[in-house]
Design a protein around this nucleic acid. Structure first.
Lengths: 123, 123
DNA sequence: CGGAATCCTCAACGATACTG
DNA sequence: CAGTATCGTTGAGGATTCCG
């Protein structure tokens, strides 16, 4: 990265900081263990059922899946659609705000690849 | 976001996924409580001393500051410079890999602002 | 099928004191 | 100044069982 471009970004950060840091806030929303995996698998395939999501995410318990989904819903990232049938059928969908996270995940993806490349070249 | 652009990104994710997901890996490296605040304050001012960093980050204990810095160093994001003087003087610097995270933080910043805007308009 | 209710464990984190 | 050493705490997350 160019130095000038880097300093530009830092200056932008300094000048646009609200009361609560948006970065800290983002981490509060998606920082817990299963949030990103859930969002990720909804990005890959939207509208999954509860047990379908449980299978694709993999390794998550009912407790945590339900808790995470409820929080994501309350934060406006996920919408829950209940078909009101017997037996029950429920699907989970990303909201626009939820889909917006793909840019962030994209950067985490790119930076993570650099990290992994670095890890394998040293030590 | 356009739908086509969104699908393009998802397809790119699917096709470029290594054994360990780079996103999960990124979160493992910077996901603990103080990593991002530390990196953040080193972005704002590089080469801070231990106690200086402790003050600017704010609220962090010696235990956690030391532990976090050691891990960031081991992961190649931070370089520790010891002046070998009496009394001791040590400064902490971002590596290139560490500076690279500014793009990711930039996205977390932008998305966080959208989240905050959303939170204040509903409920 | 899509959860809710309970109980339990551990590891992240904090508080405090001390040191070369 | 830049840490280390110990101990204490808490809450995120896991395991299990049950339910309409």
């Amino acid at each position: 990265m160019e130095q000038s471009q880097f300093q530009e970004k830092v200056t932008y950060f300094k000048e646009n900081m609200p009361k609560e840091c948006p970065i800290t806030y983002s981490m509060k929303i998606i920082g817990s263990k299963w949030k990103i995996p859930i969002l990720w698998h909804l990005l890959l395939e939207d509208g999954q059922h509860y047990n379908e999501l449980k299978r694709t995410v993999g390794g998550i318990t009912n407790t945590m899946l339900t808790k995470s989904l409820r929080e994501l819903e309350a934060d406006g990232l996920v919408r829950r659609h209940n078909y009101e049938t017997v037996p029950p059928s429920v699907t989970y969908h990303l909201t626009e705000l939820g889909k917006n996270i793909s840019d962030t995940l994209g950067e985490l993806f790119e930076w993570g690849k650099k990290l992994q490349a670095h890890q394998s070249t040293d030590n």
